[in-house]
Computed example of a mutant assay.
Amino acid sequence: MSEPVQSPGIDPRGPRFAAWITTVVLAVVLLTSSGWLLAVQAVIFAVGAFVGLKYAPYGFLYRTFLRAPVNRRWGPPSELEAEAPPRFAQGVGFAFAVVGAVGYLSGGWVVGLIATAFAFIAAFLNAAFGYCLGCQVYLLIQRFVKRSTSDKGVTA
Rank of each mutant, 00 (worst) to 15 (best):
M1H: 12
M1F: 11
M1N: 13
M1T: 10
S2D: 13
P4E: 02
P4H: 01
P4Y: 05
P4L: 09
Q6P: 08
P8M: 13
G9W: 05
I10K: 04
I10F: 01
D11P: 02
P12G: 03
P12I: 06
R13F: 10
G14C: 06
P15I: 00
P15G: 09
F17W: 05
F17E: 00
A19V: 09
W20V: 07
I21K: 00
I21A: 06
I21Q: 04
T22W: 05
T22C: 09
T23G: 07
L26N: 00
V28Y: 13
T32Y: 03
T32N: 09
S33P: 03
G35N: 01
G35W: 01
W36E: 11
W36L: 14
L38I: 05
L38W: 01
Q41H: 12
A42P: 10
F45D: 03
A46V: 01
V47E: 03
V47D: 04
A49V: 05
F50D: 08
V51W: 12
K54F: 04
Y55L: 12
Y55G: 06
A56M: 13
P57W: 00
P57E: 01
Y58W: 12
G59S: 14
G59F: 10
F60W: 11
T64W: 07
T64Q: 14
A68M: 09
V70M: 11
V70A: 14
N71P: 08
N71E: 12
R73D: 08
W74A: 15
P76E: 13
S78H: 11
L80Y: 06
L80W: 01
L80N: 06
A82P: 06
P85S: 09
P86Y: 03
R87A: 08
R87Y: 03
F88E: 04
A89I: 02
Q90S: 11
G91R: 02
G91V: 01
V92H: 02
V92P: 05
F96C: 13
A97R: 00
A97L: 04
V98H: 07
V98E: 06
V98A: 10
G100H: 00
A101M: 04
V102E: 01
G103W: 02
S106H: 10
S106V: 08
G107F: 08
G107C: 08
W109K: 15
G112D: 07
T116R: 02
A119S: 14
A119R: 02
A119G: 08
I121W: 03
I121Q: 03
F124M: 09
F124C: 08
N126Q: 15
A127R: 02
A127T: 00
A128Q: 05
A128M: 11
G130S: 07
L133Q: 03
G134S: 06
C135M: 00
C135N: 02
Q136E: 14
Q136K: 15
V137S: 05
V137R: 02
V137I: 14
Y138P: 07
L139S: 14
R143G: 12
R143K: 15
R143W: 11
F144Y: 11
V145Q: 10
V145P: 00
K146S: 15
R147C: 06
S148V: 09
K152E: 12
G153L: 12
V154S: 14
V154Q: 14
V154C: 13
T155V: 11
A156W: 09
